[in-house]
């Protein structure tokens, strides 16, 4: 049972921003409801109004924009999985979208809702960090862009103000020839760990010129691991195959692991080490033109 609330159905971002500015913390944004209805049912959130943004035309648009992939906030996970622009520019994102939660959540749940709810046990924020994701926030006073790393502040906490709407997230597609991979592990509904990796190499060269490594779910918020990324740069694929464990050890050292129902901080640190090594080897094999079919228990590799 839910407590009574009013339902606003704005048809423009401007209208939605008006309601938010007026109602303040008495209103909550609502799209798919897969997260907000749960916390309303639990009584963890009490509001007088829901502001349904999914009827705003165009807010679910997924398109190439100025060299970026722009994903509208109300695009569903299912839309993300299927959109031609995602397959063309960030195919790994489509693959991960196929494995978010379950088919019912993917049908209804939205990308913006996922990011704005900021559940630490989520795939998208981790993955989007590896694409230098930037969120676009809209309010009555205009728009502002914020790197995803600054937007997500901690568990269920973001830099979004009460009067702002998350309008879109913009991803920077990886250069041609980049080998990427994502791994998620866990026995619960939500992932216990997620790791995204990308290996960039210069034209014709074997050496890794740039790398991305993002780890999520194990700490208060997903994070990039710059020292681990830097260690890979300059390596050949043979170096990577030999020394992936060194990078994994750096990742385990630097990750901000915390204990929760999924396990202790020590456990998560160790799982980070294990899975960073595994997914680096997968990405390295892909960079070499092979597609290894690694299988680990309770693990999905995309």
């Amino acid at each position: 049972m839910l407590r009574p609330f009013a339902l606003y159905r704005p048809s423009t971002v401007g209208e939605a921003a008006e309601v938010l500015a007026r109602e303040g913390p008495d209103a909550a944004l609502y799209a798919g409801g897969t997260e907000v209805l749960l916390i309303l049912k639990e009584g963890l959130l009490r509001v007088r109004s829901l502001v349904d943004v999914k009827r705003i035309p165009g807010l679910d648009e997924i398109r190439r924009d100025d060299g970026h992939l722009s994903i509208g906030a109300t695009a569903t996970h299912r839309a993300l999985e299927r959109a031609p622009a995602v397959h063309a520019h960030c195919p790994l994102v489509a693959g991960v979208a196929r494995h978010v939660a379950n088919i019912r959540v993917r049908t209804i749940g939205t990308v913006g809702g996922n990011l704005a709810f900021a559940d630490p046990h989520s795939d998208l924020a981790t993955l989007f960090l590896a694409f230098d994701g930037v969120v676009r926030l809209a309010s009555r006073s205009g728009e502002r862009d914020l790197p995803l790393a600054e937007f997500v502040r901690g568990p269920y906490e973001t830099a979004r103000r009460d009067d702002e709407i998350l309008a879109a997230v913009r991803l920077a597609p990886w250069p041609a020839g980049t080998a990427g991979a994502y791994v998620k592990f866990g026995v619960h509904e939500r992932p216990t760990l997620g790791v995204a990796v990308a290996l960039m190499r210069g034209a014709g060269g074997d050496a890794v010129t740039d790398a991305r490594l993002a780890v999520g779910c194990v700490g208060p918020r997903p994070q990039r691991l710059p020292e681990a990324e830097a260690r890979v740069c300059g390596w050949s694929l043979a170096d990577l195959a030999r020394h992936a464990g060194e990078v994994a050890a750096l990742a385990a050292r630097d990750v901000d692991a915390v204990g929760d129902l999924h396990g202790s901080a020590e456990y998560k640190r160790e799982m980070t080490r294990v899975f960073v090594r595994r997914i680096l080897l997968v990405a390295g094999a892909r960079a070499a033109g092979r597609d290894p079919h690694e299988h680990y228990p309770h693990t999905i590799i995309v």
Partner: peptide, 21 residues
């Protein structure tokens, strides 16, 4: 929305009726 016991089809797509207005 974890277990699927409340699944219904909405325009042919599965949704959880327990978490759907």
């Amino acid at each position: 929305q974890v277990c699927g016991a409340c699944t219904v089809l909405l325009d042919g797509a599965p949704v959880s009726a327990c978490t759907f207005l």
